[in-house]
Design a protein around this nucleic acid. Structure first.
Lengths: 228, 228
DNA sequence: TCAAAAGTGTTAGTTCTACACCCATGG
DNA sequence: CCATGGGTGTAGAACTAACACTTTTGA
């Protein structure tokens, strides 16, 4: 007699809530489904976990399959498991969220695969509980951004302070004072000023900075408080 | 041709990391397994999700089956899904954590079922990845306590400020200044002082308070910051 | 009457907020 | 030479942290 033999089994899916920061706006990556079920409808990027992979492996694989994106910082949001969440099948989904800094390369990849960015205040109706997932993920990102320098890790390797500020403004959905923002950020002592300037944003140009992972890890261990 | 027919299915388990606050200490509820696999070993309270219930329904049912406890505030921690996490079977587990205020009734229930409390700094070796889950849950509780009045919600309906302080001290693992703690807590304006005193803690007795759920909900909506 | 816990006020230091102006540059 | 965004200093308000004493009462 095997303990497991009479236990139920489930399809396990992963759905990825991918936020992109593009043109000073926060956007959601939405996929136009080319397969059944729900062919033609809009949905998050998602698929089934395979028996030989972990949920997070699956989310990496699925994101790559659907968008070509790799090395994306993705975190588990939570599981969605209502009995009737998918009317077709009993399936639980482990939602994952990510925030990426959109550039031309990424946009090209995404377009090729038929995915599309929607501004966060203008997300269309998605299948199943995907709108709910999106709302939950937004809340989570706002929350996380309060105690982790989520912004830094997600910007390109080199970034300017005005860009970083725009990112936080997009996440918090409010304007921040540039003097205070700058002071605050620099006080954490986890970014390093470079010699170079980025002149795409203005004539004067803004100095580029890079994230200091070593210092950040040290700070993290001593349990510091990150609050913009 | 059915999209789902060639997809893999998984056993889905729930493991409950139940922290108890008892005698001014934070403790973990551990179960002495009476069934295979791992009979005789120590583990968290956990079992399999059934096809007709959601993960959170399962966690409520499982907690009750194993401990008799009901109406416990339980939250999802995260999923554990490494391919080799359970050497016997491919099974993913959705860990849930809770923090409860232990009293005699609870202790009796728990003892009857053969479960046992261990002080948090003295947790024995548990099966599988249960020690990892415990560590992750502890971190989560510390984190959550920073921005939610987790303490209030988990104390009995009526509680004293010294007791609340002890709870926060247990969670943060450090002493707090009673003057400052009191000021801070009262400044949130989400607890109501009662006429009664609790004299179990001292001769003088400490005034009882109750949590003001209505005010708290309002505050929450306006996105307030809770920080002890 | 005294031990033990409950309860209170103040001050110095820190951090936050709000605000206005100069800088560097390409067009 | 000027429009545009980048960059800085400061003062008042709010908050935090650190501290010592009084109150109540049962044993």
């Amino acid at each position: 007699m095997d303990l497991y033999s009479n236990k139920d089994k489930f399809y396990v899916a992963v759905d990825c809530i991918i936020f992109g920061f593009d043109n000073e706006k926060l956007k959601l990556l939405v996929f136009n489904r080319k397969i059944d079920p729900f062919i033609g409808s809009l949905s998050l990027i998602g698929s089934f976990v395979k028996i030989g992979e972990s949920v997070s492996d699956a989310s990496i694989r699925i994101l790559k399959e659907f968008t070509g994106l790799e090395n994306v910082y993705m975190k588990e949001l939570k599981t969605y498991s209502s009995v009737d969440r998918d009317p077709g099948y009993r399936c639980i989904s482990v939602a994952q969220y990510a925030l990426i800094y959109v550039n031309d390369t990424i946009n090209k990849l995404v377009e090729e695969k038929g995915a599309k960015w929607y501004e966060i205040d203008n997300v269309p109706e998605l299948i199943l509980d995907h709108n709910e997932m999106t709302i939950d993920a937004l809340k989570r990102i706002e929350q996380i951004a309060r105690y982790k320098p989520i912004g830094f890790e997600l910007l390109p390797k080199k970034f300017t302070l005005p860009k970083l500020q725009k990112l936080y403004e997009a996440i918090y959905r409010r304007k921040l004072d540039p003097r205070n923002f700058r002071k605050k950020i620099l006080s954490f002592d986890i970014i390093i000023k470079l010699e170079e300037k980025d002149r795409t944003g203005s004539k004067k140009g803004a100095f580029l900075y890079k994230f200091d992972h070593t210092k950040y890890k040290k700070l993290q261990k001593s349990g510091f408080d990150f609050e913009i």
